[in-house]
Nucleic acid binder design. Structure first.
Lengths: 140, 140
DNA sequence: AGCTTTTTGCAAATTTGTCGCAAAAGGCTA
DNA sequence: TAGCCTTTTGCGACAAATTTGCAAAAAGCT
């Protein structure tokens, strides 16, 4: 059975010699609770609990440890928990309504992406695919 | 035979009722001259020739006309000429040395990406794939 | 508890991105 | 090309986003 998300988080932090603090828990919970979020939304939601500067520092740490990653959605970036927490997936950004959809994984596609670059001598570690266009609702 | 890049640019501008000005030529040339560039780099390189505000406005226009697009490479976004000028391609970001490589297109992969989302009811217009890992030089 | 290291909040400084407006450049017609 | 109207640009002021220094608070470790 897989570790709980908190256990995974704690393990990653402690492996780095960093501690599991209240602020870090708050930020992690906010990310668990909703999908990709902008820095401003995170700051707003954490208001009164965690200072803005601490959020930036926390995200920087989380990113370095592979706990979160940035996703480019439409115009500005957002922060999202990484694959170990959410499972691997991609994003579809609807230019009609601005919504971002998570796309279920297609293992054939994943394999193909990695092997395409491996064939050219690169050693892929991760990838990010963002597709944009119109969602079913906006096609009419 | 394909139009020259300048002809294409002029055509896109004029179709929009916009003119081919000195500033716009400078920005376009900077983009032709090198790959994806951050706003700061563009501003720095255009220093003395084009004002920062004008660069932002120019990029906004170019983006609206499909002349450039933003790519998320590593950390912050960069501006790159779009497919009509550079051909469709993807990026490989080496976490070892920070270099960004352009990957040659794999039409099978492209088709697969689009059909994967079409199957779920989305109507894809464009997509962006960024793969990261180690480049041949950094693997040892 | 006492001591050391890490983390946090706060305020200030930077950087990045936008906006309004008057001057300059571009387009068009006579 | 002069005259007139529209678009574009530079400049300075703003606003928003991100970073940094530093002293106090929290966390870790005997």
């Amino acid at each position: 059975m897989a570790q709980s998300h908190y256990e995974t988080l704690k393990a990653l932090l402690s492996k780095d010699g960093s501690s599991f603090t209240k602020s870090r828990k708050v930020v992690f919970d906010l990310l668990l609770d909703q999908g990709a979020q902008s820095m401003q939304v995170l700051s707003k939601r954490a208001e009164g609990q965690v200072d803005r500067a601490t959020i930036y520092r926390t995200i920087e740490l989380f990113e370095r440890l592979g706990i979160v990653h940035r996703v480019n959605v439409g115009w500005k970036y957002k922060i999202e928990l990484s694959d170990i927490f959410l499972g691997h997936h991609h994003h579809f950004y609807c230019t009609g309504c601005g919504t971002t959809y998570s796309l279920s994984t297609n293992s054939m596609l994943e394999t193909m992406i990695d092997s395409a670059v491996a064939k050219e001598g690169f050693s892929p570690r991760s990838h990010q695919l963002e597709i944009s266009g119109l969602c079913p609702n906006c096609q009419s």
